[in-house]
Design a protein around this nucleic acid. Sequence first.
DNA 1: GTGATAGTGATAATGAGTATCGCTATATGA
DNA 2: TCATATAGCGATACTCATTATCACTATCAC
Lengths: 151, 151
Amino acid sequence: MASSKKRIKKAPKTGLIKLCMEKRMPLTQKRKLIISIIEKSSGHVDFEGIYREAKKLDPSIGIATVYRTLKLMREFQVVDHHSFGQEHKHFESPIKSHHDHLVCNECGNIIEFLDPTLEKLKLKIANSHQFRMQSHKLEIFGLCKTCFKKI
Amino acid sequence: MASSKKRIKKAPKTGLIKLCMEKRMPLTQKRKLIISIIEKSSGHVDFEGIYREAKKLDPSIGIATVYRTLKLMREFQVVDHHSFGQEHKHFESPIKSHHDHLVCNECGNIIEFLDPTLEKLKLKIANSHQFRMQSHKLEIFGLCKTCFKKI
DNA sequence: GTGATAGTGATAATGAGTATCGCTATATGA
DNA sequence: TCATATAGCGATACTCATTATCACTATCAC
Protein backbone atom coordinates (compact mmCIF):
# COMPACT_ATOMS: atom_id res chain seq x y z
CA MET A 1 0.00 0.00 0.00
CA ALA A 2 2.24 2.79 -1.16
CA SER A 3 1.08 6.37 -0.99
CA SER A 4 0.57 7.12 -4.68
CA LYS A 5 -1.97 9.88 -4.66
CA LYS A 6 -4.59 9.66 -7.37
CA ARG A 7 -6.50 12.84 -6.85
CA ILE A 8 -4.43 15.91 -6.41
CA LYS A 9 -6.08 19.10 -5.25
CA LYS A 10 -3.25 21.58 -4.89
CA ALA A 11 0.32 22.00 -6.23
CA PRO A 12 0.66 25.21 -8.30
CA LYS A 13 2.68 23.35 -10.96
CA THR A 14 3.21 24.33 -14.58
CA GLY A 15 1.02 26.53 -16.72
CA LEU A 16 -1.11 23.87 -18.31
CA ILE A 17 -1.71 22.00 -15.06
CA LYS A 18 -2.59 25.30 -13.46
CA LEU A 19 -5.11 25.89 -16.24
CA CYS A 20 -6.64 22.47 -15.62
CA MET A 21 -7.04 23.29 -11.95
CA GLU A 22 -8.58 26.64 -12.73
CA LYS A 23 -11.08 24.93 -14.99
CA ARG A 24 -11.77 22.40 -12.22
CA MET A 25 -10.67 19.42 -14.22
CA PRO A 26 -9.95 16.59 -11.75
CA LEU A 27 -6.28 15.70 -11.87
CA THR A 28 -4.38 12.55 -11.03
CA GLN A 29 -0.73 11.55 -11.28
CA LYS A 30 -1.35 9.86 -14.62
CA ARG A 31 -3.24 12.83 -15.97
CA LYS A 32 -0.53 15.18 -14.84
CA LEU A 33 1.99 13.03 -16.61
CA ILE A 34 0.04 13.26 -19.87
CA ILE A 35 -0.50 16.98 -19.50
CA SER A 36 3.17 17.60 -18.90
CA ILE A 37 4.03 15.61 -22.03
CA ILE A 38 1.76 17.81 -24.11
CA GLU A 39 3.20 20.91 -22.57
CA LYS A 40 6.80 19.85 -22.91
CA SER A 41 6.41 18.96 -26.57
CA SER A 42 6.83 22.60 -27.40
CA GLY A 43 5.17 22.29 -30.77
CA HIS A 44 2.79 19.53 -31.71
CA VAL A 45 2.29 15.97 -30.59
CA ASP A 46 -0.06 13.36 -31.89
CA PHE A 47 -1.64 10.54 -29.92
CA GLU A 48 1.10 8.12 -30.86
CA GLY A 49 3.77 10.45 -29.52
CA ILE A 50 1.95 11.13 -26.29
CA TYR A 51 1.27 7.47 -25.64
CA ARG A 52 4.84 6.40 -26.42
CA GLU A 53 6.30 9.02 -24.11
CA ALA A 54 3.80 8.27 -21.35
CA LYS A 55 4.51 4.55 -21.57
CA LYS A 56 8.22 5.29 -21.31
CA LEU A 57 7.81 7.42 -18.20
CA ASP A 58 5.22 5.15 -16.61
CA PRO A 59 4.98 1.68 -18.16
CA SER A 60 1.89 0.89 -16.12
CA ILE A 61 -0.18 3.48 -17.96
CA GLY A 62 -2.90 2.07 -20.21
CA ILE A 63 -3.90 3.24 -23.64
CA ALA A 64 -7.43 3.94 -22.45
CA THR A 65 -6.18 6.38 -19.86
CA VAL A 66 -4.37 8.40 -22.49
CA TYR A 67 -7.44 8.52 -24.72
CA ARG A 68 -9.63 9.34 -21.75
CA THR A 69 -7.39 12.11 -20.55
CA LEU A 70 -7.16 13.71 -23.98
CA LYS A 71 -10.93 13.55 -24.33
CA LEU A 72 -11.36 15.03 -20.89
CA MET A 73 -8.95 17.82 -21.71
CA ARG A 74 -10.90 18.63 -24.83
CA GLU A 75 -14.10 18.74 -22.81
CA PHE A 76 -12.53 21.08 -20.29
CA GLN A 77 -11.01 23.04 -23.15
CA VAL A 78 -7.50 22.78 -21.89
CA VAL A 79 -6.04 21.58 -25.19
CA ASP A 80 -6.43 22.66 -28.75
CA HIS A 81 -6.25 19.98 -31.33
CA HIS A 82 -5.46 20.59 -34.94
CA SER A 83 -5.99 18.05 -37.61
CA PHE A 84 -3.76 17.87 -40.62
CA GLY A 85 -5.27 14.73 -42.03
CA GLN A 86 -8.72 14.15 -43.27
CA GLU A 87 -11.78 12.76 -41.70
CA HIS A 88 -15.08 13.97 -42.90
CA LYS A 89 -14.16 14.25 -46.52
CA HIS A 90 -16.10 16.31 -48.98
CA PHE A 91 -15.46 15.67 -52.61
CA GLU A 92 -15.67 18.22 -55.31
CA SER A 93 -14.67 18.63 -58.90
CA PRO A 94 -11.24 20.22 -59.31
CA ILE A 95 -12.53 21.86 -62.47
CA LYS A 96 -13.72 24.59 -60.19
CA SER A 97 -10.88 26.90 -59.38
CA HIS A 98 -9.31 27.07 -55.94
CA HIS A 99 -11.37 28.57 -53.20
CA ASP A 100 -11.63 28.55 -49.43
CA HIS A 101 -14.54 27.73 -47.17
CA LEU A 102 -16.84 29.22 -44.58
CA VAL A 103 -18.26 26.29 -42.59
CA CYS A 104 -21.39 26.83 -40.50
CA ASN A 105 -21.12 25.13 -37.12
CA GLU A 106 -24.88 25.05 -36.82
CA CYS A 107 -26.29 23.78 -40.12
CA GLY A 108 -23.08 22.40 -41.62
CA ASN A 109 -23.55 24.43 -44.74
CA ILE A 110 -20.45 25.38 -46.66
CA ILE A 111 -19.94 28.68 -48.41
CA GLU A 112 -17.13 28.95 -50.91
CA PHE A 113 -15.16 32.11 -51.44
CA LEU A 114 -12.09 33.34 -53.17
CA ASP A 115 -10.19 36.42 -52.12
CA PRO A 116 -7.24 37.50 -54.27
CA THR A 117 -5.70 39.54 -51.45
CA LEU A 118 -5.79 36.46 -49.26
CA GLU A 119 -4.17 34.32 -51.93
CA LYS A 120 -1.34 36.80 -52.32
CA LEU A 121 -0.91 37.01 -48.57
CA LYS A 122 -0.64 33.22 -48.22
CA LEU A 123 2.20 33.16 -50.70
CA LYS A 124 3.89 36.10 -49.06
CA ILE A 125 3.76 34.41 -45.66
CA ALA A 126 5.17 31.16 -47.03
CA ASN A 127 7.98 33.02 -48.77
CA SER A 128 8.86 34.95 -45.66
CA HIS A 129 9.52 31.62 -43.94
CA GLN A 130 11.49 30.33 -46.93
CA PHE A 131 8.72 27.78 -47.29
CA ARG A 132 7.83 26.42 -50.72
CA MET A 133 4.05 26.50 -50.86
CA GLN A 134 2.39 23.61 -52.69
CA SER A 135 -1.17 23.84 -51.47
CA HIS A 136 -3.13 25.62 -48.81
CA LYS A 137 -6.42 25.52 -47.05
CA LEU A 138 -8.34 28.09 -45.08
CA GLU A 139 -11.50 27.31 -43.20
CA ILE A 140 -13.49 29.81 -41.24
CA PHE A 141 -15.93 28.23 -38.80
CA GLY A 142 -18.88 30.03 -37.30
CA LEU A 143 -22.51 30.82 -37.96
CA CYS A 144 -23.96 31.52 -41.36
CA LYS A 145 -26.34 34.42 -41.89
CA THR A 146 -29.44 32.26 -41.49
CA CYS A 147 -28.31 30.39 -38.38
CA PHE A 148 -27.07 33.57 -36.74
CA LYS A 149 -30.53 35.08 -37.08
CA LYS A 150 -32.17 32.02 -35.54
CA ILE A 151 -30.04 32.15 -32.42
CA MET B 1 -26.35 -11.38 -71.05
CA ALA B 2 -27.26 -7.79 -71.65
CA SER B 3 -24.88 -5.40 -73.31
CA SER B 4 -23.85 -3.24 -70.33
CA LYS B 5 -20.50 -1.86 -71.30
CA LYS B 6 -17.96 -1.79 -68.52
CA ARG B 7 -15.06 0.00 -70.09
CA ILE B 8 -15.90 3.06 -72.07
CA LYS B 9 -13.29 4.64 -74.30
CA LYS B 10 -15.05 7.49 -75.99
CA ALA B 11 -18.12 9.71 -75.38
CA PRO B 12 -17.13 13.37 -74.88
CA LYS B 13 -19.49 13.65 -71.88
CA THR B 14 -19.40 16.19 -69.09
CA GLY B 15 -16.44 18.14 -67.85
CA LEU B 16 -15.36 15.86 -65.05
CA ILE B 17 -15.65 12.70 -67.12
CA LYS B 18 -13.70 14.44 -69.83
CA LEU B 19 -11.01 15.25 -67.30
CA CYS B 20 -10.87 11.59 -66.25
CA MET B 21 -10.39 10.57 -69.85
CA GLU B 22 -7.69 13.14 -70.36
CA LYS B 23 -5.88 11.79 -67.32
CA ARG B 24 -6.31 8.25 -68.68
CA MET B 25 -8.32 7.03 -65.74
CA PRO B 26 -10.14 3.88 -66.88
CA LEU B 27 -13.88 4.47 -66.83
CA THR B 28 -16.85 2.18 -66.50
CA GLN B 29 -20.59 2.74 -66.27
CA LYS B 30 -20.47 2.56 -62.49
CA ARG B 31 -17.56 4.93 -62.29
CA LYS B 32 -19.25 7.36 -64.63
CA LEU B 33 -22.30 7.23 -62.40
CA ILE B 34 -20.24 8.13 -59.33
CA ILE B 35 -18.39 10.86 -61.17
CA SER B 36 -21.61 12.43 -62.38
CA ILE B 37 -22.98 12.43 -58.85
CA ILE B 38 -19.95 14.35 -57.61
CA GLU B 39 -20.21 16.77 -60.47
CA LYS B 40 -23.94 17.31 -60.12
CA SER B 41 -23.71 18.00 -56.40
CA SER B 42 -22.75 21.53 -57.19
CA GLY B 43 -21.12 22.12 -53.85
CA HIS B 44 -19.84 19.42 -51.60
CA VAL B 45 -20.75 15.79 -51.06
CA ASP B 46 -19.47 13.34 -48.52
CA PHE B 47 -19.16 9.58 -48.95
CA GLU B 48 -22.56 8.96 -47.42
CA GLY B 49 -24.25 11.27 -49.89
CA ILE B 50 -22.48 9.82 -52.90
CA TYR B 51 -23.24 6.26 -51.87
CA ARG B 52 -26.90 6.97 -51.13
CA GLU B 53 -27.42 8.65 -54.48
CA ALA B 54 -25.51 5.97 -56.37
CA LYS B 55 -27.54 3.23 -54.69
CA LYS B 56 -30.71 5.05 -55.67
CA LEU B 57 -29.71 5.34 -59.31
CA ASP B 58 -28.21 1.84 -59.50
CA PRO B 59 -29.21 -0.46 -56.63
CA SER B 60 -26.73 -3.08 -57.80
CA ILE B 61 -23.76 -0.89 -56.97
CA GLY B 62 -21.65 -2.06 -54.05
CA ILE B 63 -20.12 0.05 -51.31
CA ALA B 64 -16.64 -1.15 -52.27
CA THR B 65 -17.03 0.21 -55.77
CA VAL B 66 -17.82 3.66 -54.45
CA TYR B 67 -14.83 3.62 -52.12
CA ARG B 68 -12.64 2.25 -54.88
CA THR B 69 -13.75 4.84 -57.39
CA LEU B 70 -13.20 7.71 -54.99
CA LYS B 71 -9.74 6.40 -54.16
CA LEU B 72 -8.96 6.01 -57.84
CA MET B 73 -10.14 9.54 -58.55
CA ARG B 74 -7.85 10.84 -55.83
CA GLU B 75 -4.95 8.94 -57.34
CA PHE B 76 -5.68 10.35 -60.77
CA GLN B 77 -6.21 13.75 -59.17
CA VAL B 78 -9.62 14.23 -60.63
CA VAL B 79 -11.26 15.16 -57.33
CA ASP B 80 -10.31 17.45 -54.54
CA HIS B 81 -11.27 16.37 -51.11
CA HIS B 82 -11.55 18.70 -48.20
CA SER B 83 -11.85 17.58 -44.66
CA PHE B 84 -13.73 19.57 -42.12
CA GLY B 85 -13.41 17.05 -39.36
CA GLN B 86 -10.29 15.82 -37.71
CA GLU B 87 -8.14 12.85 -38.25
CA HIS B 88 -4.50 13.12 -37.47
CA LYS B 89 -4.87 15.24 -34.39
CA HIS B 90 -2.05 17.25 -32.94
CA PHE B 91 -2.47 18.50 -29.44
CA GLU B 92 -1.09 21.68 -28.08
CA SER B 93 -1.47 23.89 -25.10
CA PRO B 94 -4.06 26.64 -25.60
CA ILE B 95 -1.94 28.86 -23.42
CA LYS B 96 -0.13 29.73 -26.58
CA SER B 97 -2.04 32.32 -28.53
CA HIS B 98 -3.71 31.60 -31.84
CA HIS B 99 -1.49 30.91 -34.78
CA ASP B 100 -1.60 29.18 -38.14
CA HIS B 101 0.60 26.46 -39.56
CA LEU B 102 3.04 25.72 -42.33
CA VAL B 103 3.10 21.93 -42.73
CA CYS B 104 6.01 20.32 -44.56
CA ASN B 105 4.84 17.56 -46.90
CA GLU B 106 8.27 15.98 -46.80
CA CYS B 107 9.40 15.84 -43.18
CA GLY B 108 6.06 16.52 -41.52
CA ASN B 109 7.51 19.38 -39.56
CA ILE B 110 5.16 22.13 -38.51
CA ILE B 111 6.06 25.80 -38.40
CA GLU B 112 3.78 28.13 -36.52
CA PHE B 113 3.17 31.68 -37.58
CA LEU B 114 0.92 34.59 -36.81
CA ASP B 115 0.20 37.36 -39.25
CA PRO B 116 -1.93 40.27 -38.04
CA THR B 117 -2.85 41.29 -41.59
CA LEU B 118 -4.08 37.78 -42.22
CA GLU B 119 -6.15 37.76 -39.04
CA LYS B 120 -7.81 41.01 -40.01
CA LEU B 121 -8.46 39.73 -43.50
CA LYS B 122 -10.14 36.58 -42.20
CA LEU B 123 -12.56 38.64 -40.19
CA LYS B 124 -13.20 40.97 -43.08
CA ILE B 125 -14.01 38.08 -45.40
CA ALA B 126 -16.39 36.51 -42.89
CA ASN B 127 -18.14 39.81 -42.37
CA SER B 128 -18.53 40.41 -46.08
CA HIS B 129 -20.51 37.15 -46.23
CA GLN B 130 -22.53 38.10 -43.17
CA PHE B 131 -20.89 35.15 -41.51
CA ARG B 132 -20.27 35.19 -37.76
CA MET B 133 -16.74 33.90 -37.35
CA GLN B 134 -16.12 31.70 -34.31
CA SER B 135 -12.85 30.05 -35.19
CA HIS B 136 -10.61 29.64 -38.18
CA LYS B 137 -7.75 27.59 -39.43
CA LEU B 138 -5.20 28.15 -42.14
CA GLU B 139 -2.73 25.53 -43.21
CA ILE B 140 -0.13 26.01 -45.88
CA PHE B 141 1.34 22.76 -47.17
CA GLY B 142 4.60 22.50 -49.04
CA LEU B 143 8.30 22.10 -48.48
CA CYS B 144 10.21 23.60 -45.60
CA LYS B 145 13.53 25.33 -46.18
CA THR B 146 15.56 22.22 -45.34
CA CYS B 147 13.55 19.78 -47.41
CA PHE B 148 13.44 22.14 -50.37
CA LYS B 149 17.23 22.26 -50.42
CA LYS B 150 17.48 18.46 -50.34
CA ILE B 151 15.28 17.97 -53.38
C1' DG C 1 -15.25 -18.16 -79.59
C1' DT C 2 -11.04 -18.20 -76.27
C1' DG C 3 -8.14 -16.72 -72.95
C1' DA C 4 -6.26 -12.73 -70.39
C1' DT C 5 -7.37 -9.16 -67.57
C1' DA C 6 -9.94 -5.43 -65.23
C1' DG C 7 -14.05 -4.48 -62.61
C1' DT C 8 -17.47 -5.84 -59.40
C1' DG C 9 -20.30 -7.14 -54.99
C1' DA C 10 -20.18 -9.53 -50.83
C1' DT C 11 -17.81 -9.94 -47.05
C1' DA C 12 -13.69 -10.57 -44.11
C1' DA C 13 -10.07 -7.92 -42.12
C1' DT C 14 -8.01 -3.79 -40.17
C1' DG C 15 -7.31 -0.12 -37.13
C1' DA C 16 -8.43 4.04 -34.48
C1' DG C 17 -11.11 5.29 -30.95
C1' DT C 18 -14.78 4.21 -27.24
C1' DA C 19 -17.39 1.57 -23.80
C1' DT C 20 -17.45 -1.89 -20.36
C1' DC C 21 -16.03 -4.34 -16.36
C1' DG C 22 -13.87 -5.75 -12.30
C1' DC C 23 -10.36 -3.99 -9.42
C1' DT C 24 -7.78 -0.31 -6.77
C1' DA C 25 -7.04 4.06 -4.51
C1' DT C 26 -8.86 7.97 -2.31
C1' DA C 27 -11.99 10.69 0.54
C1' DT C 28 -15.21 11.12 4.04
C1' DG C 29 -17.51 10.10 8.14
C1' DA C 30 -18.40 7.34 12.20
C1' DT D 1 -8.94 3.18 12.35
C1' DC D 2 -12.27 1.07 9.81
C1' DA D 3 -16.31 1.17 6.45
C1' DT D 4 -18.39 2.75 2.63
C1' DA D 5 -18.98 5.47 -1.56
C1' DT D 6 -16.97 6.87 -5.54
C1' DA D 7 -13.46 8.18 -9.13
C1' DG D 8 -9.85 6.39 -11.79
C1' DC D 9 -7.51 2.63 -13.67
C1' DG D 10 -5.87 -1.27 -17.18
C1' DA D 11 -7.33 -4.84 -20.00
C1' DT D 12 -10.06 -5.88 -23.40
C1' DA D 13 -14.42 -6.22 -25.97
C1' DC D 14 -16.71 -3.53 -29.14
C1' DT D 15 -17.88 -0.17 -32.97
C1' DC D 16 -17.63 1.76 -37.25
C1' DA D 17 -15.29 3.64 -41.38
C1' DT D 18 -12.28 2.10 -44.71
C1' DT D 19 -9.51 -1.44 -47.15
C1' DA D 20 -8.27 -6.09 -48.78
C1' DT D 21 -9.67 -10.49 -50.47
C1' DC D 22 -12.02 -13.58 -53.34
C1' DA D 23 -14.90 -15.72 -56.59
C1' DC D 24 -17.42 -14.30 -60.40
C1' DT D 25 -18.48 -11.48 -64.64
C1' DA D 26 -17.70 -8.38 -68.52
C1' DT D 27 -14.69 -6.68 -71.88
C1' DC D 28 -10.81 -6.71 -75.05
C1' DA D 29 -7.38 -8.59 -78.31
C1' DC D 30 -6.84 -12.24 -81.04
